[in-house]
């Protein structure tokens, strides 16, 4: 029997998280290269419909892992369910998206099974018989190829955007769905989660902005935000920021770009004094053109920039505002 790759897709309140398709694309690519069988699992209270949705993609089988205790999500219930399921479903490789939910339970699951997780990977390589997984280190300044030095199952999580969700292959024939009922005792679940909520109505929808001028730590002081604002206004764009700026209260939280804020794909993303931490990059790497101004020549933001300026933003932005204004008048 060939080895199995199992992709655990993510659902929340009856909806598949889109990033699940990216992980499935990764699973299909690894399956094609290794000859291993690809299967998927959906975990939740009642997930037959979602399992059928996944079964339209190129997978050998979809498992609907169900228990009433899996709704709402808790790490205790998810670990109990997956540990039980993986004791009968022998998988070599277990893939999941690196979401906040997966981060919440997968290290616990792997530890409970005396295994490890290579987390937040951006790719993989097959080197002879060996599979290595690429992950970013030191906030993206360096990359590492990491291999497993333990028995299977091997747990891997992939960063959002590492694979193309729209490239997931459809099935020639719909895959069979198998329901797996798991038993979770009442006292297993210790956390009592309340309803999910949004803090405040989002005042600014940055996802619709064509031009975004974004500021990071390099702006140094709150009063300097004004400079970035003037540039945004001259360009007719929106002002945004990386997390530390919003944490400091210099701009409201609803202007934050990144994994905990908004994910944007504007025509132009102009990053001022943003180093490019992974959590920020995942929120803006889809921009058509990225311009970065940063005094640190080794800032990771330059890895993904189309145009880069190594220099002091306080020297460059004022004449840039003037040039933009001139061009606007001339056009």
């Amino acid at each position: 029997m060939p080895d199995t790759i199992l992709v655990v897709v993510e659902q929340r309140e009856g909806k598949l998280n889109r990033v699940s398709w990216e992980t499935l694309t990764a699973g299909q690519a690894i399956a094609a290269e290794t000859g291993w069988t690809l299967e998927a699992a959906v975990v939740g209270g009642s997930v037959a419909t979602l399992a059928s949705e996944v079964a339209t993609k190129k997978v050998a089988k979809v498992h609907a892992v169900e228990s009433p205790r899996l709704e709402p999500y808790t790490p205790d219930a998810f670990v109990a369910a997956l540990k039980q399921f993986l004791s009968s479903k022998k998988a070599k490789l277990v893939l999941m998206p690196h979401t906040y939910q997966v981060r919440d339970f997968v290290p616990k699951l792997a530890t409970a099974m005396d295994r490890t997780v290579i987390s937040d990977c951006i790719g993989y390589k097959k080197e002879g018989d060996k599979l290595v997984f690429t992950r970013q280190m030191f906030q993206g300044k360096l990359a590492a190829d990491v291999s497993f030095a333990c028995d299977v199952p091997w747990f891997v999580t992939f960063q959002s955007g590492a694979f193309r969700g729209d490239k997931v292959e459809a099935a020639a024939a719909v895959a069979p769905v198998e329901t797996v009922k798991v038993e979770i005792a009442e006292n297993v679940v210790r956390n009592k989660p309340h309803e999910v909520f949004k803090e405040a109505k989002q005042a600014v929808d940055l996802t619709q902005a064509e031009i975004i001028v974004s500021v990071g730590r390099g702006i140094k002081e709150q009063k300097n935000i004004e400079l970035a604002k003037q540039l945004a206004e001259a360009l007719g764009g929106e002002l945004a920021a990386s997390r530390p700026i919003c944490d400091s209260g210099w701009l409201p939280m609803d202007r934050q770009i990144g994994s905990s804020g908004q994910t944007v794909a504007p025509k132009l993303y102009l990053a001022l004094g943003i180093s490019g931490a992974i959590q920020h990059i995942v929120g803006m790497k889809g921009a058509r053109t990225i311009i970065a101004i940063n005094k640190d020549a080794e800032a990771p933001i330059f890895e993904i920039a189309d145009y880069a300026v190594v220099g002091n933003l306080f020297d460059i932005v004022p004449p840039l505002i003037e040039e933009v204004k001139k061009a606007k008048v001339g056009s």
């Binding site: 295994r115 490890t116 290579i118 290595v132 280190m137 300044k141 360096l142 990359a143 590492a144 190829d145 990491v146 291999s147 497993f148 030095a149 333990c150």
Partner: peptide
């Protein structure tokens, strides 16, 4: 249980 094979730019 996991090993960094190599680190690189």
């Amino acid at each position: 249980m996991q090993k960094i094979e190599r680190l690189y730019i």
